[in-house]
Design a protein around this nucleic acid. Structure first.
Length: 419
RNA sequence: GGAAGCGUGGCCGAGUGGUUGAAGGCGCGGCUCUCGAAAAGCCGUAAGGGUUUACGCCCUUCGUGAGUUCGAAUCUCACCGCUUCCGCCA
């Protein structure tokens, strides 16, 4: 959510930004509602002042009649205000965050490549995709996943389960040694928290499973729960940013995702993810965004997976993000001869989430100001295993285990003949 | 799941319909005293919003929401959370 005062004073800038973001919002209507809203508030305040003045002491009988009238006027004005505010809130909450001046302007395809790293593997055989590899090695069962829970659910089996646990541990180590506090979060959250982070739990475009007869939803990412963790709090950031690395399950309906890259594990309804989350002062957020990206790169480099870093373009940022970097790993499953697929994403959401969730920090002068929030993927299970299987496949169909994981796993390759 | 109790400012805690945004205490800030400190004394100490060039004025907030009333921290209802006892259970 943007500050209404900012919108009031920078209407043209906000309009231009909305346009770059591909969002159609009637800013003039919003400003009109803003004026109406303040008019109603003033009116109600004046009526209440009148009533309060009289209510300090016991009124005379003939005054009570007048006060009843004032009470009715207040009720009426409050109803009007509620109507104005309903529309006002919808427009305000739909308004996306501002955009970093260096973010490319454009849509999904207009990202800017910032860096390419690692060597794209050259196979002297026809490489397979992870689904073929995993099925052949008895590492996954989609059919029975569908039988038990429906399409796009799966059972992981054998060494893939072990690999995933080793990946999570590797991510935990990498992040905690940089001062990130480890947590495991609830897999459900109140809809109010989801909305604060910028997800819509209801409506036709929702990506979220909700629990019937409750105000809870399954989380799509631990960003939701960790972001809600400090909601309605004033933080002490005098010792530096507050940094978490959080493990959770993630659930996504993936409605309307047909036709996009969706082979095998790439796009599924449930997965496990280790997510980083940072609360910091506004002047620190750009630096922290770089740090999150650096950790993500360190993880990919350590695993020796070829990847590129892209700077996401304006219309592809989503509502809350001010700037977003994705890491895309090389995958054989993408396109005809391989290509890049997203494995991590890190966003600087500035004060957009903090304003909705009411998260502030204490400044040196004693006043409070909204924090900036950032998030970044440490380890996304499903996406990382895809990259490992496809990049580390051997001619005989076995999978070499990345060096950094060999010791903790106790084996160097995944083959068919184990157990 | 059943029963009972509780939820007030940074913290503890008073307050059961009318100058209560809220006594008292702790903490915190300032001052006095002191060579300095402690102790003691005095003064000050919530947040958000509206309006104003400004001083200021006004509104809202006592877990959340709705209701009763001329008027609610105080009464009613629902929800959330906490504590204790019973049941159940990983």
């Amino acid at each position: 959510m943007l500050d209404i005062k900012f919108i009031r004073e920078n209407a043209d800038l906000v309009k231009k930004n909305n346009q770059n973001r591909g969002v159609d919002i009637d800013v003039d209507r919003l400003l009109e509602l803003d004026v109406m809203r303040r008019e109603r508030i003033l009116q109600i305040d004046q009526l209440r002042a009148l009533r309060n003045k009289k209510s300090k002491t016991k009124p005379l009988d003939e005054e009570i009649l007048k006060m009843k009238e004032v009470g009715r006027d207040i009720d009426l004005a409050e109803k009007e205000l509620a109507e104005v505010e309903a529309e006002y809130k919808i427009l305000l909450e739909k308004t996306p965050n501002l955009t970093h001046p260096e973010s490319p302007i454009g849509g999904e395809e207009d990202f800017k490549v910032l860096e390419e790293s690692g060597k794209i593997p050259k196979f002297d055989f026809k490489p397979k995709d992870h689904e073929q590899l995993m099925l052949a090695l008895d590492q996954i069962d989609f059919e029975r996943g569908a039988k038990v829970a429906g399409a796009k659910f799966y059972f992981l089996k054998n060494d893939l389960v072990r690999l995933n646990r080793a990946l999570v541990n590797y991510g935990i180590e990498t992040a905690t040694k940089r001062g990130y506090m480890l947590m495991e979060t609830p897999d459900l959250a109140k809809n109010q928290i989801l909305e604060g982070i910028g997800f819509s739990p209801r409506g036709p475009e929702t990506q979220v499973y909700s629990i019937e007869n409750t105000d809870l939803s399954l989380i799509g990412t631990a960003e939701i729960t960790v972001g809600g963790y400090h909601s309605n709090e004033v933080l002490d950031l005098s010792k530096g940013p507050v940094k978490y690395v959080a493990l959770s399950h993630c659930f996504r309906t993936e409605g309307g995702a047909y036709g996009r890259v969706s082979k095998g594990l790439y796009r599924v309804h449930q997965f496990t993810k280790l997510e980083m989350f940072v609360y910091c002062k506004p002047q620190e957020s750009e630096k922290m965004h770089k740090e999150l990206l650096a950790i993500e790169r360190e993880i990919c480099e350590g695993l020796q997976i070829p990847f590129r870093v892209i700077d996401i373009a304006s219309a592809d940022l989503g509502g809350p993000a001010y700037r977003k970097f994705d890491i895309e790993a090389w995958m054989t499953m993408v396109g005809e001869n391989g290509g890049y697929g997203e494995i991590t994403s890190t966003s600087n959401c500035t004060d957009y989430q903090a304003r909705r969730l009411n998260i502030k920090y204490r400044k040196d002068d004693g006043s409070a100001e909204f924090v900036h929030t950032l998030n970044g993927t440490a380890i996304a299970l499903t996406r990382l295993p895809i990259a490992i299987f496809e990049n580390y496949q051997q001619k005989d169909g076995s999978i070499k285990v990345p060096k950094v994981l060999q010791r903790s796993l106790g084996f160097k390759e995944i083959r068919n003949d184990r157990r």
